[in-house]
Simulated scan of single mutants.
Amino acid sequence: MRKIVCAGATFCTGDDIAAALLEYAVALARAGSSATANFPARTPSGMIARLDVVFGPASQVVSEPIELLGPEIVDQGAVAGLKELTERLVPRTATA
């Protein structure tokens, strides 16, 4: 599980989701663009909810490991969607 701090907000989400969020935030910054990301996270009350967070060129995002009670948050659809958005911003180059 990872704790993410962004624009004064703190939330916890799964490792794979956090990694995909950071990659997307970096791609947006490099493109000089901003967008909203939607993903599941644990609320302060312990419930799982979907968050909408805006990331942009000036976003400062911190991710750190955290031990929480409860299962890891896993959402392969959210991870795949974030990776797809990232790839649109940073197209893969052909290899020989």
Rank of each mutant, 00 (worst) to 15 (best):
I73K: 04
T93P: 02
K3L: 09
A96H: 04
V54Y: 00
S59E: 13
G32H: 05
C12N: 09
A94F: 14
S45K: 04
R92L: 03
T86A: 15
A35H: 01
L28E: 11
D15T: 14
G32S: 05
Y24L: 15
I4N: 00
V79M: 10
Q60N: 09
V54Q: 15
V90M: 08
S59Y: 10
K3S: 13
T93A: 10
V53C: 06
A80T: 09
I73R: 08
F11Y: 07
S33M: 14
L28K: 03
L89N: 02
S45G: 05
T43A: 14
A35I: 02
Q60A: 13
Q76S: 12
A37F: 04
P44N: 12
R88D: 08
V90S: 11
L22P: 12
R88A: 12
S45C: 02
A49R: 13
R88Q: 12
I66W: 08
V53Y: 00
A58G: 03
S34K: 15
P65A: 11
L89M: 09
G14T: 03
F55N: 03
T95D: 05
R50E: 09
R88S: 14
L22Q: 14
T86L: 07
V61H: 01
A78N: 08
D75Y: 08
A18M: 09
I4W: 00
D15F: 14
A7C: 04
I66Q: 10
A58Y: 06
G77C: 06
R30T: 04
L68E: 06
E23A: 12
V54G: 08
A96P: 15
G32N: 05
L69I: 02
S59P: 08
A9S: 07
D16A: 15
K83S: 08
T95W: 01
A80W: 10
C12D: 09
T95I: 15
G77S: 07
G8D: 03
P44C: 08
V74D: 04
S63I: 09
L85S: 15
T95N: 02
A94M: 09
K83L: 15
L21H: 06
A80S: 11
P65W: 00
E72Q: 07
K3R: 15
F39S: 06
Q76G: 10
S45P: 00
P44S: 07
M1L: 10
A94R: 12
V61S: 05
S63G: 06
Y24S: 07
V53M: 13
L51G: 04
R50D: 07
A41K: 00
V61T: 06
A25L: 04
V53I: 14
V79F: 11
A20H: 06
R88V: 04
E87F: 00
A7R: 13
R2N: 07
A41Y: 01
A29S: 13
T43E: 12
V74L: 13
S63R: 08
I73H: 02
E72V: 02
V79A: 04
A7S: 12
A49Q: 11
P91H: 06
Y24W: 11
A96C: 07
A80Y: 10
A27I: 08
A58D: 12
A25D: 04
D16V: 11
R50M: 05
Q60M: 11
V62F: 14
T10Y: 00
R42E: 02
A78P: 04
G56I: 05
C12S: 11
T95Y: 01
G56N: 13
P40H: 03
A19K: 11
T95V: 15
I48G: 01
I48S: 05
A19I: 10
I66F: 13
G81W: 04
D16H: 12
N38R: 12
